[in-house]
């Protein structure tokens, strides 16, 4: 066992982990961060995407010990003070999800995409989320959601979304 300290969604956790433990299993099983999910075992689906020190990573491709001393943001930590992140809000408004299983990873990947490219074209969005699989939506509304979020973040800066979680259009 190896002791690691990881700050996840603003809270610091110190735990003993097996060296082989993947970050996603550490998040889900030791820290109870079950908002992040596991969809495959080959790093193809991206459902487990989180931000590690501000970069999006597939948390099934990172060992927990590699995250020692790092800051992790999961889907549970992107809404601040009950206010949805513009990307979360856009996924809701543009119907960018159905079953919602890929959604945590898709939102985390999209946030990172918009950080790198604040006004992506449709093709750039499709390329940017290529590593995240969705079986429900056919991606069209996800693309729309990212476009809408880009527009909102571009005109207002980040985190000025007025709508709170659960608000209906």
């Amino acid at each position: 066992m190896t002791q690691i300290t990881v700050r996840v969604d603003g809270v610091s956790y110190t735990d003993d982990v097996e060296p082989r433990t993947l970050l996603v299993h550490h998040l889900r099983e030791q820290l109870g961060k079950v908002g992040t999910v596991v969809g495959c075992d080959t790093s193809n689906c991206g459902a487990c995407t989180v931000h590690l020190d501000g970069q999006s990573v597939k948390s099934c491709t990172v060992l927990a010990v590699q995250a020692d001393g790092s800051e992790v943001t999961t889907i549970e930590g992107v809404a601040e003070g009950g206010v949805l992140h513009p990307v979360q809000k856009a996924f809701h408004e543009m119907h960018g999800l159905q079953c919602g299983f890929c959604t945590p990873g898709m939102i985390m990947a999209s946030i990172d995409l918009l950080k790198e490219n604040p006004s992506p074209s449709e093709l750039e969005i499709r390329e940017g989320i290529e590593g995240n699989l969705c079986r429900c939506t056919g991606y069209q509304n996800i693309v729309r959601a990212v476009q809408q979020a880009a527009g909102e973040m571009g005109s207002h800066g980040t985190h000025t979304a007025p709508e709170t979680t659960g608000a209906q259009a």
């Binding site: 908002g35 999910v37 889907i75 949805l84 979360q88 809701h92 919602g100």
Partner: peptide
Amino acid sequence: DARLITGKT
């Protein structure tokens, strides 16, 4: 969506 986009699933 409220629970699905926030990880409260």
